[in-house]
Design a binder for these strands. Structure first.
Lengths: 181, 181, 181, 181
DNA sequence: GATGAATGAGTGTTCATTCAT
DNA sequence: CATGAATGAACACTCATTCAT
């Protein structure tokens, strides 16, 4: 029987993950040391290691969390009533990315890079992407498009480029995308 | 007078960069140690440091090189006579990404992630992207599209997604993109 | 009044010692962590610490126990009726060592090494050895030997070598010892 | 081409091994930290690691060295002209053990214990023991004994007991052994 | 000019033990 | 009385980089 409730345990885990999150978003997975995470969490080294067995586990959890949060945001977007039009959807995705804080999308960019060498993250990314495409397909079914699935795929494939445009290239070229899309 | 020496110097520099390249593509920038690079180059530690003052400089150079090589590939594509149609272009970009070796695109993914924290790389990425858009715009001018610049922008923004789809998501959904685009 | 409680206490203590024993025999005193012992015992950390104040105390207890058990085995051997002859005794000691499980003798070897730095264990080892020599002397008095004490001493001194021969050197050279002894 | 001569390299390696030796003799293999060894050597951490890839490698080397030194001592004893008699040999072995410094024999005791869990050390111990028995057999051939090999085996098997008697039990019972042997 | 031995600061992780609950 | 979460100090080891030769 644990002295700490399951709830409290989960809470602590989230606290550590959040602390790591901030470090990861600022410095990247590898330029963040465990000491950075430990200091940010306010716990002791072994306190952190009780909840995450290794730095890798923490990176994994952060990467997955970034995709989970993206799903949540998309779920909200896709669940709107009345369903957004094509233009509205793109506008809202862009707004979502541009809206501070941008921790989430910074970590997503790194998670994709990290997925190159970390099969567990790659798998998670695949799942995320598949679900996203499925949902977008449903939504696109309501638009006046010839092939909803194809349009959904294009949108989903565009996503990484939007993040990179925002963070690296000086901004998302919203106007142009509206016109071309 | 030191003409040959200058040439040799450049040659050496490229050799080191190529050696680092292989390591970076395999393990990422941060999981690659300078010792890895030094061993791969076959030179001595100080031999490497004579040509690159720090690991950061090497990462920078590798990131820039990845963009330079991409430019080269696009230059070839865009310079074709007769100029490729919209569909042809997309097909050739996909073919270029899918064709081994995939070192180049692996490093590009990492370079974008690294650009989040490294202004010099971000700047370079911006330049690359601007040039790419300009060239694509010229090309798109020949297609039957309403707004060539918008189409070029869409294509350029799509690029990161294509790389990630290839490396992480199990393949580029070529068919769907053809239809939607 | 707390009679039963006292009994239970002793029982618990033995349970912990037995659990530690298994770990120590497998991994040695120092490559065994308290967490290993705690996990093996099935108790909580503080449960274990209630019975043994420190790892050192546990090592001490295990070392002493190994000598106590050796005494028990020798007591049985030496108490045989009719008393064993010289050859029989050696044979039985060898049989005792070679008979699995060999936890006991593995720990004895480690206890001697540990006794180099741990006066309390050294003292215990001295006591054990003195008693062993005394008993063997009594027994040797019945044999046809010139100096029973000398023979007993030789036997007692040989003991570590027998254990090491068994565990490290690939077996006790029984035949040769029989001839020479 | 190394900047440091092969000779100097070997010298440094021996220096580190000697520094570790002192620590190991005092505290045992496992209660000695690499920092202890590093401090004793006067080098930096990575300086030590250039010569020994891990603590395990250092323990191995120390264990082997202890056996090598024992061989050297025995070689000298066994090479004496005229060859020692039985009694002389035993006396000299005892003298050798009792003569300070006793680092060597302290480490030997620990090496045997360590050999329980470290096959490489066990193998080395076996080799050492086999050679020792062979040499002793040759020597015993000159004595007036029925079975030289058996006597040699008894002597070799006795060795661990002598060390433990010296270090742990308060002294080697020389007199008794002389009589019984 | 080129070498590679050497470094100090830092890495991720585990340790024996305690104490709030 | 018993728990197991928490700790601080230590652990073995690696890093990017420099400099005596």
């Amino acid at each position: 029987m644990p002295r700490i409730s399951e709830e409290r345990r989960e809470q602590r885990r989230r606290h550590i993950l959040t602390s790591a999150w901030r470090c990861f978003a600022r410095d990247g997975f590898h330029a963040t040391s465990m000491d950075d995470v430990i200091a940010a969490s306010g716990l002791s080294a072994s306190g952190v290691y009780r909840y995450f067995r290794s730095k890798d586990e923490l990176i994994d959890a952060a990467g997955r969390e970034s995709m989970r949060l993206f799903r949540e945001l998309f779920d909200r977007l896709l669940g709107q009533r009345p369903p957004p039009t094509r233009t509205q959807l793109l506008a809202e995705v862009v707004a979502m990315i541009e809206e501070p804080p941008d921790d989430l999308s910074r970590i997503a960019v790194q998670a994709w890079a990290e997925a190159l060498r970390r099969p567990s993250l790659a798998e998670h990314a695949r799942d995320f992407h598949a679900e996203l495409r499925a949902d977008l397909t449903t939504l696109a079914g309501r638009w006046d498009v010839e092939d909803p699935e194809a349009v959904a795929t294009l949108l989903a494939t565009l996503l990484p480029g939007l993040l990179i445009a925002h963070h690296v290239l000086g901004g998302i070229p919203t106007e142009a995308l509206f016109k071309a899309f």
